[in-house]
Amino acid sequence: MTTAVAERQRGIGGAISDLFFARPQLVTFLLLTPPLLWIGVVYIGSLFALLLQSFYSLDDFSGLVVHEFTLSTYAQLFEASNAQIILRTVTMAALVTVASAIIAFPIAYYAARYARGWTKALFYLAVMMPLWSSYLVKVYAWKLILAKEGIITWFANELHLRWLLDGILALPVVGGPSLSFSYLGTFLVFVYIWLPYMILPTQAALERVPANFIEASADLGADPRQTFRTVIFPLALPGIVAGSIFTFSLTLGDYIIPQIVGNSRLMIGQAVYTLQGTAGNIPLAAAFTVVPMLIMAVYLWMAKRMGAFDVL
């Protein structure tokens, strides 16, 4: 008499389970096909179409797109007014990134090293809550804060610091008639809006630095400053780089913040918006769009060469 080793399979569900168990690669295939189709066709495809557009040109007289390969559209990027847009945007993105990193680090460090229990929950709440409300609402709120009749001016008056505010606004380039019409205002709003994207990856990186690395460093004679420089910062760097990818690329592409808070000088995003809309110059808009992608590619390549991803 023999006893069956295998339990009898139960219905169609059981059969499917058995099939998946025997062929794990089938599961992978089924799971990956929809997202790959989405990314491959919709995302990469449209990116490719964009790239293609940037090699066409606009006929100045007819205002029609000439579907012939040319580099003349890219050459237009180097004309003074366009080059200034690029330079202005890249400078803004770089400054926003540096400022975000400097502000984010202590917050991330506190959250990773010291916050426990409810302080940790409070940290996540404080960092994430701004992300729950509408971006437009936040930007308009800032416009009110920074306006000439706004709370900052009011505070400056109350504290008899109006001379300081006026002095800052009188600065060349960054100043303006009021904070809401100056580069300084644009910068402040950018830093505020993108800060969570810098804090979270930095905190995640710091979270992964075991406490005993810090003890080992101290044990080997390093004071806290040396430990920070030689152990904590290098290990947090991949997180800071990840955060800077967000702050840098988001600033490069944004066209709403400089539209609402700032002077009338264009950033790349605004240029793309106007060129593809009212101007109907799709090729130049596409060429402008390629610029941030190239900058990010160069940036990532440099970060990799500096060893920012070695510890990942």
Binding site: F213, E215, A216, G221, A222, D223, V231
Partner: peptide, 20 residues
């Protein structure tokens, strides 16, 4: 006296070698 001013060194249980 903090650890970095003691002439004492430690071999940690999980070694704590610096990965970078």
């Amino acid at each position: 006296v903090p650890p970095y001013r003691r002439n004492v060194n430690t071999v940690f249980q999980d070694y704590a070698l610096f990965p970078h």
